[in-house]
Nucleic acid binder design. Structure first.
Lengths: 224, 224
DNA sequence: GTGATTTTTTCACAGTTTTGACATATTTTC
DNA sequence: GAAAATATGTCAAAACTGTGAAAAAATCAC
């Protein structure tokens, strides 16, 4: 997946640089605008901006105005930056559809954390998580497994178990650890039940089944 | 249906009045803008403008610029007015997605005729958001569903559920997630009600019904 | 408003899948 | 080879889903 684009609007270049550096370091593509008019212009020519970070105090067109313009036809998440923590402003912001409100001075880490939270909430952040190991492919979100590109059917527990294995591939896992992570914490049954599930998993994985190694006297391990 | 709204953009008030009078007589509602910036502003605050008549030669922001701004996120039909019949301009206009091109001086009747033609061609409906998945087609705004191009009737909840599925096709959805997204957030009823709706949805989708897969112990998924 | 109709929700039961336990077989280690 | 640990087949219990019917709620027609 491509990097997500974030538009940073602030008249102070020092502030833009600060935010940009942190965002770039966090893996985003950053577009900058030094005033409101420019911001609106960039937003409407660039079609796939994932989020807007918007300063309120700007010459010419202020943040509220930019927000209104953008909101009038886009639901893109908007984070407002403000110098003073004015509650009335905050209210106005939320009415305009501002998603977050961060008052200066702020720690860039906080900004990044808020951004990630919003992107996660709006489902724009890396959902396409596909785990692989040798010939085994697991799409967690689709709940789908392939062995050498042939889809296979796994039960709920088998799937959970496989995900746990593949997320810890190459690591020896004790039965106790597996129980604590794949089974509910309140499960007090036989630890040997894992054997049964490993058995079924191995058989469903076909000729990739032997990737699950037995660590004698200890537990299991998914070969990397 | 309400009168269709047409936005007329020209810096000459004489010209605007001329066009407006004819359009009003033809049964349209007319909005006027005397410059490009104003035009963009009006266009984005008014959400249901059916067509834009746009003069090219204007101070501040010219017609091309307005066209670009509007086109960057709307497919509304645009008719350009120009004083000189410059072929190169025309080319540029069509590349920008201009629908018609009328050179001044023009007869108002011609303008109205062209407008009617375009509106007929575009079915007087600007943009229709149509979701698809395999043989299933959903027109969200028209609240209409087709299965293999045969229209089918769905109740409100069934429709909402299908939209949620299709907007998340290929993703396994837990009952909890479905409840939180399709039902109101404060719904605390039986999660099994989803099963009932899935059942009805499956049956109404006919032979496409089995695109909705059961993820055992987890929820449902619409096959991509 | 009233009564009829449609939609939504609940519920119970039947049918299915999964799960975990157990007994037995096999493998590993010493 | 014996002891200890794991693999496997079987199976009943548990968990879950599909379904039809009925109750409740919302909507419509008058």
């Amino acid at each position: 997946m491509d990097k997500l684009k974030i538009l940073v609007v602030d008249d102070e270049s020092r502030m833009r640089k600060l935010v940009r550096d942190f965002l770039v370091k966090s893996g985003y593509e950053v577009l900058e605008a030094e005033d409101g008019a420019r911001a609106v212009d960039i937003f409407f020519t660039q079609k796939d901006i994932a989020l807007v970070v918007l300063d309120i105090m700007m010459p010419k067109m202020d943040g509220w105005q930019v927000c209104r313009e953008i909101r009038s036809h886009s639901k893109v998440p908007i984070i407002m930056l403000t110098a003073k923590s004015d509650e009335r402003d905050e209210l106005q912001g939320f009415q305009l559809g501002v998603d977050e409100y961060i008052s200066k001075p702020f720690s860039p880490k906080i900004l990044v954390a808020r951004i990630e939270a919003i992107l996660r909430r709006t489902n724009q952040l890396g959902q396409e998580e596909i785990l692989t190991c040798a010939g085994i492919k697991v799409d967690k979100s689709a709940h789908q497994v392939w062995v050498d590109d042939t889809p296979i059917e796994l039960s709920y527990k088998e799937f959970e178990l496989l995900v746990y294995f593949i997320e810890n591939k190459g690591i020896a896992l004790s039965r106790e650890k597996i129980l604590n992570n794949v089974w509910n914490y309140d499960y007090f049954g036989d630890a040997r039940t894992i054997d049964t599930h490993v058995k079924k998993l191995r058989s469903k994985l076909g000729n990739r089944g032997d990737l699950i190694k037995t660590i004698w006297g200890m537990g299991y391990k998914l070969e990397e």
